[in-house]
Write a protein that binds this DNA or RNA. Structure first.
Lengths: 189, 189
DNA sequence: GCGTTCATGTAATATGTTACATGATTTC
DNA sequence: GAAATCATGTAACATATTACATGAACGC
């Protein structure tokens, strides 16, 4: 069960509602984990039942009411234990890579389109993460911030997200170029 | 169902047994997908039942007998359809990132050890992938190979694997450095 | 004789995805 | 008036992980 720890880690920076969490774990951000809203609502219910988080109702006038959750002492202990335990290796599972693996045996036109789309998506994330990093470190240099900042966890994970998306973008672009070059050079199949 | 397509893509380069496939999809390689042996045996059975792959018994003297599988025409069509369909985005899900996200709230000693281990693991993969790439392109330059090589799919995915592991390694090392620096600078908590 | 590699699976459990469901408010 | 955002879930289905299970042969 790793989602629970991701949720606990996300709640460290302050109370959040299920809806807010869902946004943080969704496409736009998700710089250290990804999960869907349904998963999160279910996990929040479980975590609360086990006493690892505590929720409080917030009545709103203009919007539907919501519940904000925060990590309890028991939750922090759980996180601590998780951090100390051996880490499972993480692995690549990407449909796009599967398609490229088969590139010599399938038509490449659609593949090129999908790679271009992914490159654009990755670029958007690069921009977003770069902006987030600037916001977090404020007017300090990166070195300064990492040395003396009060909360560097999210900064470090965001750095990984940034590098990952840069890698994604670069690879997609180079792969498109390679496939296009072959389309051009080769006779019609 | 994405595993089935990964299996089909892996079988494009020639017949493989479940055991050989399992090795390819395991820790050591897995440059475009990861799966455990149990999953693969189950998927191979399903794929054969559906006629997307064909297996043949190979009797061995010195070793237990095995079954080699190859992609059928129907299997190739399935792969073709998969490649043409829209690609689901892929997301980061990494326990180590969750732990780093929580770094300011947990003890960092164990975390540093795990990051170092991951860095070493990533370096080993970098070496492996670099070697695989050299083997694939032979004495040609990369550009030459990509332009005229007969099978570039595995080369391209391996390039992504290489870059990914380099990114992993670099990030782990920098993160270790940042966490160590804070341990040194800061008073004991 | 003991551990590793080759070779293949089943069964139980955990986790994740997809589809369905509801209802208010705000912005175009 | 329609679409997007806020807000929260349930139920059915698909997929993945973990534990269990077996057995031969090879190298030390």
């Amino acid at each position: 069960m790793a989602l629970r720890h991701a949720v606990l880690a996300a709640l460290l920076d302050g109370e959040l509602s299920g809806y807010q969490l869902a946004k943080a774990f969704d496409l736009g951000v998700a710089n250290f984990w990804y999960a869907q809203p349904q998963q999160l609502y279910a996990e929040l219910a479980r975590l609360e039942k086990e006493g690892l988080i505590a929720g409080r109702e917030v009545v709103q006038e203009t919007r539907p009411n919501k519940r904000l959750f925060q990590v309890t002492d028991a939750g922090l202990e759980e996180l601590q234990a998780f951090a100390a335990a051996p880490t499972k290796p993480s692995f690549i599972r990407d449909d796009l890579l599967v398609k490229v693996q088969a590139a010599d045996h399938v038509t490449t036109a659609a593949l090129i389109a999908q790679l271009s789309e992914r490159a654009a998506f990755a670029q958007a994330k690069v921009d977003l993460f770069a902006k987030l990093l600037r916001t977090m470190r404020g007017d300090r240099t990166e070195e300064e911030f990492l040395r003396h900042g009060s909360r560097i966890g999210p900064y470090l994970t965001c750095q990984r997200g940034l590098a990952f998306e840069q890698g994604n973008r670069d690879w997609c672009e180079r792969t498109v170029a390679a496939l296009r070059e072959r389309q051009r050079t080769r006779a019609r199949r």
